[in-house]
């Protein structure tokens, strides 16, 4: 475990906690894309199938449970909670995320580290995670005004994968045979998707103005 990866995990954990905090305290999910949250729940469910078969470390197991639990509870809140679901603007959150799932599944069947169920599911979860933020970014473009917590949530989510890229570079140079092209390319694509959001986020933060994304 190197510092980059630990920072990445903490940033990721913090992004999910920020979101849960927002939904739980103000009982609102305005500006949050349910589609992105559902995609993340699928990402974790398919990524952590080895939860009970491969024991890596207590940290690893606990973090997997926290990610699974938080992503499923966010989906539950947005779908079932009587107050929260009212603040979900479903006519704005229209990205057809099903169109993301099938191509990722086909790609995982074609490109994977080993053609076994676990490995294909693992590759699928990486491809899906790379594009899972798209419905959220589209929703932000549409609703234009971004409240602080949503902006922080997306920013932290982008930062987590950026730390992971530093982690992969570090491990490449310090560990023999550490090569995971599937992870690296998916992670890079994922971070690039945040590119323009980061630009506008820093821009608004520097000029201390409200974050506005261009139409």
């Amino acid at each position: 475990m190197n510092m980059f990866r630990f920072l990445g995990d903490m940033t990721h954990l913090f992004s999910v906690l920020v979101l849960l905090l927002k939904i739980h305290t103000i009982k609102s999910c305005a500006g949050i894309s349910l589609k992105t949250q559902e995609l993340y729940a699928i990402v974790f469910a398919t990524r952590y199938l080895d939860l009970f078969t491969d024991y890596i470390s207590l940290y690893n197991t606990v973090m997997k449970l926290v990610y699974l639990g938080s992503s499923l509870s966010i989906v539950w809140y947005m779908r079932r909670h009587k107050l929260v679901r009212r603040s979900y603007d479903k006519d704005q959150d229209t990205f057809r995320h099903h169109f993301l799932i099938l191509p990722c599944l086909i790609l995982a069947l074609l490109i994977n580290e080993k053609f076994t169920f676990m490995e294909v599911m693992w590759a699928f979860s990486l491809y899906l995670e790379a594009v899972a933020i798209l419905p959220q970014l589209v929703l932000l473009q549409r609703t234009r005004n971004i409240d602080n917590l949503t902006g922080q949530y997306v920013f932290l989510l982008g930062a987590y994968r950026s730390f992971y890229i530093l982690n992969w570079i570090y491990r490449y140079f310090t560990e023999v045979h550490y090569v995971h092209w599937i992870t690296w390319i998916s992670g890079l694509v994922q971070t690039l998707l945040y590119g323009d959001f980061f630009y506008y986020y820093f821009h608004s933060w520097k000029n201390n103005e409200k974050l506005q994304l261009p139409a």
Binding site: H12, D50, D54, I56, M63, K114, E119, W122, N167, H177
Partner: peptide
């Protein structure tokens, strides 16, 4: 090798 496929990252 086996550790190649063991996924130790989250």
């Amino acid at each position: 090798t086996d550790d190649q496929t063991t996924k130790d990252e989250l």
